[in-house]
C-alpha cells in the first residue's frame, strides 16, 4: 500500500508491504534519515522520539499507517548547521553529548516540551523528559533545556519586534 506523509516539510509517498511497520523504520530505512535512533523497540528509552503534527511520538511504537497525511519532523528537520533550532543551539553551547546516540530523542522531546511549556521549571523537565541516557548527560541536559527555553523566547521576541 501507499502512504503519503510530509517529512521535514517534504511530501513523501512510500510503498509499504506492512502498514503496521513502525514509522521509525520507514524514516530510517526507506527515507534514509538516520538521525532518529532505534534503542529498544518498546517505547521505553525514547531514542526514536520525533514529532507527528507537532506532538512528541516514540516512533518505534507508531505504525506508519497512522502517519498518513500528517506532518513528521525528525532531528534533521528540527534545524540545521545554518539555522539551528534553539534546542540544538543550547545543546552545542552546553556541550551536552557524550556518545550522542540518545541525544536526538532528547532534543526532540525537549523541543516538544518548549512548544507546550515555553519556560519549563525543573519539575516540568523531570516529568516530561523521561528518555534514557546511559552516559549520564542529564546534568548538562537540564542546563541546556533552560538555556534553550531562553534562546527560544529571545528568538520569538526578536521576531515579534521585526513584525
Amino acid at each position: 500500500m501507499k502512504i503519503s506523509l510530509t517529512v521535514n516539510g517534504e511530501l513523501k509517498t512510500v510503498e509499504i508491504a506492512d502498514e503496521n511497520t513502525p514509522l521509525l523504520w520507514v524514516i530510517r530505512d526507506t527515507l534514509d534519515l538516520k538521525g532518529t535512533k532505534f534503542g529498544c523497540g518498546k517505547a521505553a528509552c525514547g531514542a526514536c522520539t520525533l514529532h507527528v503534527d507537532g506532538e512528541a511520538v516514540r516512533s518505534c511504537s507508531y505504525p506508519v499507517k497512522f502517519a498518513e497525511g500528517k506532518k513528521v519532523t525528525t532531528i534533521e528537520g528540527l534545524g540545521d548547521r545554518e539555522n539551528p533550532h534553539p534546542v540544538q543551539q543550547a545543546w552545542i553551547e552546553e556541550i551536552v553529548p557524550q556518545c550522542g546516540y540518545c541525544q536526538p530523542g532528547f532534543m526532540m522531546a525537549t523541543a516538544a516540551l518548549l512548544n507546550k511549556v515555553p519556560k519549563p521549571t525543573d519539575e516540568d523537565i523531570d516529568k516530561n523528559i523521561i528518555n534514557v541516557c546511559r552516559c549520564g548527560t542529564y546534568y548538562r541536559m537540564r542546563k541546556a533545556i533552560h538555556k534553550a527555553a531562553n534562546l527560544q523566547l529571545e528568538k520569538e521576541n526578536n521576531q515579534s519586534k521585526e513584525l
Binding site: 538516520k34 548547521r81 539551528p84 552545542i92 551536552v96 550522542g100 541525544q103
Partner: peptide
C-alpha cells in the same frame, strides 16, 4: 575546547554502527 563531534551529534548525522548502510 568543544568536542569535535559536537555538530554531528546535535544535527543527527548518520555516524553510528546502527546507521551504517
Amino acid at each position: 575546547v568543544p568536542r569535535v563531534d559536537l555538530d554531528a551529534k546535535v544535527y543527527g548525522d548518520p555516524i553510528f554502527g546502527m546507521d551504517a548502510d
